[in-house]
Design a binder for these strands. Structure first.
Lengths: 293, 293
DNA sequence: AGTCATTCGTGCATTATTGCACGGGTATTT
DNA sequence: AAATACCCGTGCAATAATGCACGAATGACT
């Protein structure tokens, strides 16, 4: 009888292109992967991978079964969620994926009450910037800043996210000189707020991380567009918002989970708690607590 | 990481209603099944079966995941077929499901040439009367007497099956007496040929097996409707067909396999061989070689 | 040319899984 | 009431799978 678990190994190798990297994803030793693929090929009399110096490359036969393997994987993910959803206990683990800043400034300071209240639930905060795969149960709850939540996920929009243009008190805008701006690395063409308010500018710094951007503003490099909650919550005396009329972004703060887990006790409890603590910070996130220049 | 193979065990228990019977289906020891189910329940924090005296009974949670488990199973069967289809070697095994009589009288006497020609292919004849599941690869090729082949299966109709009414030479139809008939056990109401030709009859014997029916005719119990190829191929001097005008049945002799295996070398070769030896017996199966009374 | 980082396979020790054999329970049969 | 035929769980030994450590091969980089 064919071991259905074989296809998990097959997919990992097919996706990662090498036995070694597949093994780290699977959390096993590379020799295990190597041997299981070899056994699989022998059992079915089909060569699935070409052994190249650079790694394993799918053969035509492997290409033929790849899509079906993906189907099987997605069904297994669905099964995992369904099983997890049946677990009615208020114990076990919950994985929460959340952006770094939100975790630090809006959630962690107020979250302890939840872990105190539920000693048998262990929370994992996954602050990786990449959106985790809630289908594959890499995360159970996602706290996200996004315009629209992805389909398959259900949740509540808790606040409209507001941005402001901030600068440090030290920074002086000089007359008849272009203003210094800090932009995202990927903003190769000037975004709308730059065109509207600062047509005459120079880009003094490019960053790809919010913390760096914030630090740059604080150090007086120039002006930058930052979510209001970040400087406002820190009660930073040194940084002020500019009183500009900005087009409000359509982004919002969402607490999301997979639809399958909607009724799961511990997920419900955790989402409800997150709703509560984030709703108390609505004004902050919507930029109503800013100190202006 | 969840072991995808768990669901194979889950399904076997869910279907068979006990750990022990599931274990025989899976071909492992019952304690293995028992322990794997227990581990699964522990891992997911869900009780899947109620332990009753009579065996294991699905809980509500298990009912919830049952359909999805079936989906996963069917995908895995598809995968098995796809993998098997990739095997281009003329070696390995082929499972052929075939009715008992056809195997004995029409195939086995002429099949040896194939095994001689392909020493690396091992053939399993599965003469079980039940139609094997070609989706699950319980069998690769089915030789079947049927009006229409099931969907998903592809194949060729090699001959129209003809039946005749047979009796032994010893049996004497007595004037003004009802004729003695041998019928199937399930024929509670008289079939068409009885109404048409023998309205005045008595059922002397009921059988549920073709060999028994044949033996009964041979022993002179009375008349019976039998596929012509059976008495005709045996060159039985003692049994004769009655010269009756029968409505020809729409059944045919089919050699079938799953569409996925259409291009598989060893299946192609085997089907072609079966076509050949069965086509040579067309006249026999279509009842053109009968000796009449 | 030599160093380093990657890739992979393989022998051997460790660990995990499985099979076996037993015992205990309940229902059915004799 | 005893015998039989099922269920199932569990300790222990056999077996299978895995991890570890090593060596070899290749390509990139110094």
């Amino acid at each position: 009888m064919t071991d259905w678990d074989d296809f998990r190994y097959f997919l990992a190798v097919a996706r990662n292109g090498s036995v070694t990297s597949a093994s780290t994803v699977l959390g096993v030793n590379h020799s295990t992967v190597s041997r299981r693929i070899a056994a699989m090929e022998k059992k079915h009399g089909v060569r699935l991978f070409e052994r190249l110096i650079s790694g394993y490359e799918m053969t035509a036969a492997a290409e033929n079964i790849y899509q079906l393997a993906l189907d099987i994987e997605s069904k297994n993910h669905e099964m995992q969620r369904l099983l997890f959803a049946q677990d009615s206990r208020l114990q076990g683990s919950i994985n929460i994926t959340i952006p770094h800043d939100l975790a630090n400034y809006c959630v962690l300071p107020y979250f302890k009450a939840f872990t105190d209240q539920h000693p048998d639930i262990s929370i994992n905060f996954i602050v990786s910037p990449s959106l985790k795969d809630l289908n594959a149960r890499e995360a159970d709850i996602a706290v996200r800043l996004t315009p629209e939540p992805p389909e398959n996920l259900v949740g509540k929009k808790l606040a409209k996210l507001r941005h402001g243009i901030y600068q440090s008190k030290q920074y002086q805008v000089k007359e008849n000189k272009p203003v210094d701006l800090i932009l995202w690395k990927h903003e190769t063409t000037p975004p709308k707020w730059v065109k509207d308010h600062f047509p005459d500018h120079r880009v003094v710094l490019r960053v790809d991380d919010m913390a760096s951007k914030y630090a740059a503003v604080k150090a007086g490099y120039g002006l930058a567009r930052i979510p209001c909650y970040l400087p406002d919550t820190l009660n930073e005396q040194n940084i002020r918002r500019l009183p500009l009329d900005m087009v409000p972004s359509d982004w919002g703060l969402w607490v999301l989970s997979h639809a399958d887990l909607r009724q799961t006790a511990r997920i419900k409890a955790c989402k409800a708690f997150l709703h509560q603590i984030l709703q108390e910070q609505t004004d902050l996130i919507e930029g109503k607590l800013s100190s202006y220049l």
